[in-house]
């Protein structure tokens, strides 16, 4: 309502400026001229996508197909070696652990983020005093810069002076070398990443809960269904479309998690928390002698994985929009 009045105020201004002798009254635009206008508005973004998405991606593929050294990187005359970099990567002893860690990291993070997010969403969906404020506060971990979260978790998980080990000590559990022991490092980065991902799941699932009609719950309660039964027979099935979207998007996001792992453990110790994302960075930038080719090859494998799940996500979303 207020929008329309606002624009009515603006219209006379438009008349005034458009009525000069240089601007003759226009005839109705033909669809052709609208097409031109549309693409004129789109041109900057199209150019931008070509320059800053397509070209870097192309350069990355190019990197992965040539034998780059620091010198040929600068001069740009690296010899074409086909899929040799990919073969190097597959044969690398880091490949199998990195693949395993990527799968475990992604799967465990997704399951916990979703389960905790859903439980919290159901909890906050009940109206109680302060529920809106507390729900807003839950966004904090998601809004913080990743380096802030990662360094805070690093200090909390510090073996000697960390608060987590102090708390474990208080209940009689010996110190755990969270970040420095190969058997715990992956767990540590998973815990930190779950903490960061819960708010996103909470917000999206909460908005999904809001669209379930309250009448259904009332009817079920009249029929004698308890809260547990109501959750499994109403909430969970009706939330399936939103759940699918949340999980798929979470999958794409989690696959490419880099900052947290790199800042907390650098993928170590001894590659025990290396995923494809950190391995790719390690190869390209982490060593004194950069291996740009293999690094780009690992990165491209990650792009393929992300795009496959991304396409599934878009299919699901389109199907839901149509139904």
């Amino acid at each position: 309502m207020s929008n329309t009045t606002q624009v009515r105020h603006r219209r006379p201004v438009g008349n005034h400026r458009g009525a000069g002798p240089t601007a003759p009254p226009r005839v109705r635009r033909r669809p052709g001229s609208q097409q031109w206008a549309a693409w004129a508005f789109l041109a900057p973004v199209v150019l931008y996508l070509a320059l800053f998405y397509a070209y870097p991606l192309y350069r990355n593929i190019d990197l992965s197909l040539r034998n780059y050294t620091v010198r040929s990187f600068v001069r740009g005359d690296a010899p074409f070696t086909g899929l040799k970099n990919y073969r190097t990567v597959f044969d690398d002893p880091t490949f199998a652990p990195a693949l395993l860690h990527t799968v475990v990291f992604t799967a465990v993070c997704l399951v916990f983020q979703y389960a905790i997010g859903l439980a919290l969403a159901v909890f906050f969906n009940q109206n109680f005093r302060l529920s809106a404020t507390l729900r807003a506060l839950f966004l904090v971990p998601w809004l913080l810069p990743l380096i802030v979260s990662a360094s805070t978790w690093s200090w909390m998980l510090n073996s000697e002076s960390g608060v987590v080990n102090a708390a474990l000590h208080a209940v009689g559990i010996g110190p755990v070398n969270w970040l420095t022991s190969p058997s715990w490092s992956l767990t540590s980065v998973i815990i930190a990443n779950i903490w960061i991902g819960v708010p996103f799941n909470l917000v999206v699932l909460y908005s999904g809960l809001q669209s379930i009609p309250a009448g259904l719950y009332e009817a079920a309660a009249l029929d004698g269904a308890g809260p547990w039964r109501r959750f499994w027979s109403i909430t969970f099935p009706l939330l399936r479309p939103v759940s699918a979207i949340t999980l798929l998007l979470g999958l794409v996001y989690t696959l490419k998690v880099f900052d947290i792992i790199w800042i907390m453990t650098k993928g170590g110790p001894a590659d025990s928390s290396t995923t494809f994302a950190t391995w790719s960075y390690q190869l390209g930038f982490g060593n004194l002698l950069p291996a740009f080719g293999p690094g780009a090859a690992v990165g491209n494998l990650l792009v393929v994985a992300a795009l496959v799940f991304g396409l599934i996500y878009m299919r699901v979303q389109r199907k839901q929009a149509l139904s």
Binding site: L57, Y58, F258, Y281, A296, G299
Partner: peptide, 8 residues
Amino acid sequence: PGIIMAMG
């Protein structure tokens, strides 16, 4: 993934 873009 941002890391790919960064390399490019």
